[in-house]
Simulated scan of single mutants.
Amino acid sequence: MRKPEIKKYARIVSTGISLGRTLVTNEEYEKYFGLKLPDAWRSALENRIGIRHRYVASPDQAPSDLAAEAAKMALQKAGLTIDDIDLVIVATDTPDFQTPPTVSSVHYKLGAKLKTGGFDINAACADNTIALILASQSIMLNEDVNYALVVSPYTMVRFTDPQDVTASIFSDGAGAVILGPSDEPGFITGKIIADGSYYDYWGIYIGGARPVSEEVVREKWHKLRYLKRYPPDINLRHWPGLVQETLKKAGLTADDISYYFVTQVNREMVRELMRILGQPVEKAPTIMDKYGYTGSACVFMALHDTIEQGKLRKGDYLQFVTSGVGFVMASAIFRWV
């Protein structure tokens, strides 16, 4: 029996993004959604969470459309075509349909051929990082996988109740990352943790356990529902340990990381993580002021912005730190090569 062996290393090659077609500012929120944001909430939204506007996908913009648009940008920036891609992973909790997988639509819209494999994963807003880990390992362990496309579309706005003020954090868009082969290590390591006791706190509770019916729709189970209050410190209770455990696996310290790409759900929370780690807040780019909270896409957008600003230098270490409801959390470390 042949033992698995590393065939090559994997690195991040390029990124791309796309956005919902309509920009809605906080000033325009009542006109668009029919709800006036209370003064106290709007103050927190802008000054603590960091959100001043959001993008809303048009009815004719499916998650796969946003994914394909972001993927095309990443391909163009990499100087590749879809024929160069051996694997596509769609990471999202707002798919086109329950089945078939959204990767099928993305595959078709990109004009991919039979040799380009693909699948979906869903770990809520942690699935982006998990997909990076899976794509990297696929490149490293498979002779026939050289380039992998990871793309995360997010269209949570259409699943929210517009009469719920917390819906104002959400924004629609997609982020894409292309990974490719390398002669030196790019992907270093990753780690995933989970606590399933939070499965019934909040989510979109339709599916095999609650099939769609008139009663289900009338009771709004097809919308994002908050059944229990998430502990407000849940991320800060677990992120620091997850970061340190992943760093330990890599033989690195927090000081070695040049940039942290953290779930963009709350700007002050991201900054507090940096303070706990003893790091400058500038090491954790925040983009919710530009794009709103784009869930599965958000850390890819933060990475994209950082690359576009020319901030990354060869040899920089990058750490992704993401969390999704349920809950699932993930971290991955890459070296920019």
Rank of each mutant, 00 (worst) to 15 (best):
P4N: 09
A10M: 11
R11S: 06
V13I: 13
S18A: 08
S18Y: 03
L23Y: 02
Y32A: 13
G34S: 15
L35D: 11
L37I: 15
P38C: 13
W41M: 11
N47H: 14
R52S: 10
A57Q: 00
P59A: 13
P59D: 15
D60Q: 00
P63N: 13
S64E: 00
A68G: 00
E69I: 00
K72H: 01
A74T: 05
L75S: 08
L75Q: 01
Q76Y: 06
L80A: 08
T81W: 03
D93K: 03
D93F: 09
D96Y: 06
P100Q: 15
V106Q: 06
Y108F: 09
K109W: 00
K113S: 07
L114M: 09
K115W: 12
K115N: 05
K115S: 04
D120G: 10
A123H: 11
A124S: 14
C125A: 10
D127V: 11
T129K: 05
L132V: 10
L134P: 07
A148K: 01
V150N: 05
T155D: 01
V157D: 04
V157K: 09
R158A: 13
T160K: 13
D164L: 13
A167F: 08
A176E: 07
I178H: 01
I178E: 01
P181M: 07
P185V: 12
F187V: 01
T189M: 13
T189W: 14
G190Q: 12
G190M: 11
K191F: 02
G196W: 04
S197H: 13
Y198Q: 01
Y199W: 15
W202T: 07
I204D: 06
Y205V: 10
I206Q: 08
G208I: 10
P211E: 14
S213A: 10
E214Q: 08
E214I: 04
V217H: 02
W221R: 11
W221S: 09
K228D: 11
P231H: 09
L236Y: 00
H238R: 15
G241Y: 14
G241P: 09
G241D: 14
L242E: 14
V243N: 07
V243F: 12
A250M: 12
G251I: 12
L252S: 10
L252T: 09
A254S: 12
Y259K: 12
Y259S: 03
Y259T: 05
T263Y: 00
V265S: 04
E268L: 06
E268W: 00
M269Q: 07
M269W: 03
R271H: 10
R271G: 02
L273T: 02
L277G: 00
A284F: 01
A284L: 08
P285E: 05
T286V: 09
D289R: 05
K290A: 04
Y291Q: 06
A297H: 05
C298N: 06
M301Q: 11
H304G: 03
D305V: 08
E308K: 15
K311R: 15
K314Q: 13
K314P: 08
D316Q: 13
V321F: 02
T322Q: 10
S323D: 04
G324Y: 02
V325P: 04
G326H: 04
V328W: 00
M329G: 05
F334I: 06
V337C: 09
